[in-house]
Amino acid sequence: MLEAKEVNFAYRRGLPVLNDIACTIGDGEFVALLGHNGSGKTTLSRLFMALLHPRSGQVLVDGEDIVNYEPADLADKIGYVFQNPDLQILEDTVFDEVAYGPKAKKLTAETIKKQVEAALAATGLAELAGAYPRLLSFGQKRRLGVASALALNPRTLILDEITNGQDAIEKERMMQYLQRLNEEKGITIVLISHDMDVVRRYAKRAIVLKDGDLVYDGTPTELFGGAYAVEEWGLRRPTAAALAGSLGFTAATPEEFCRLLVRKGAED
């Protein structure tokens, strides 16, 4: 479980980035963390990973204040996949890249081999175990980042813009994989994203930040249902909601859009 209790943060002596943030992400949730560029969402995710520490307030993981923790202390609890996958590549083969974390934890060779092979198989990279990581496609590098996080068997994955730069097929494959991790293994997913169609389809909860303030915490369906001016928060409505709005009605999902469009056609 991840908790922020009245968290405030600013970089050095600059303007505040987070203002009295209070939220809890429970075990097994699939949460989208949303907001315009500079809203504070990546900063909040880094506080959860102990990459940063709050100026005031508390950040807790499984009920423990992590103010004195380093990222390595949380590596077997929380996996963090950066927006730029090249930032995480350190080794010369895919296998060694995924094994980096388990080796740093001084696990046995047998355990390392078992966990790395399981992570590679789960992300569809088993056949590329001997490949040079920097020559992988962008989508494969994304999956490599997830595999590296999974090799430590974390209970939570924080994913920063994981679908950026992927084509439709790679995006679908990645999101369905994350959905299976969440539903079948109970892994908590925290997805930072600007892709509202992905958020609407996969996330069960959305947390929205605007200029460092938490302005919404609820379901994506309610968020995009028409009651909120999400554009003022720097969000783009999902395709179905945007099309419905242009035709004079509201719809949060493609199914609802089609149903209302048929009804509207019959009435006309």
Rank of each mutant, 00 (worst) to 15 (best):
A50I: 01
A121E: 14
E183V: 08
H53P: 04
D73G: 09
L152T: 11
G226I: 08
T188Q: 07
A151F: 03
A252N: 08
P154K: 07
P102C: 05
E256P: 01
A203G: 02
L261G: 02
Q179L: 15
R13I: 06
V31Q: 08
D217K: 13
M174T: 15
H36M: 11
A129F: 12
K185L: 11
S148H: 00
A10L: 05
D20C: 09
L260H: 15
E91I: 11
G145K: 02
L51D: 12
S56D: 12
F138G: 15
R259W: 13
L128H: 14
N153P: 00
A241E: 13
F9P: 00
A75I: 07
A244F: 13
T156E: 08
I21L: 15
V61P: 02
R12Y: 10
S56P: 03
I25P: 05
L214H: 04
Q58L: 12
T219S: 15
G26P: 00
D62T: 02
G79Y: 02
L135T: 13
A151M: 04
L2M: 11
K103G: 02
Y177W: 11
D96I: 05
G57E: 08
E184Y: 03
D268F: 08
S148F: 02
E110P: 00
F95Q: 07
G35K: 07
A244P: 00
D20I: 09
N8D: 13
G265I: 14
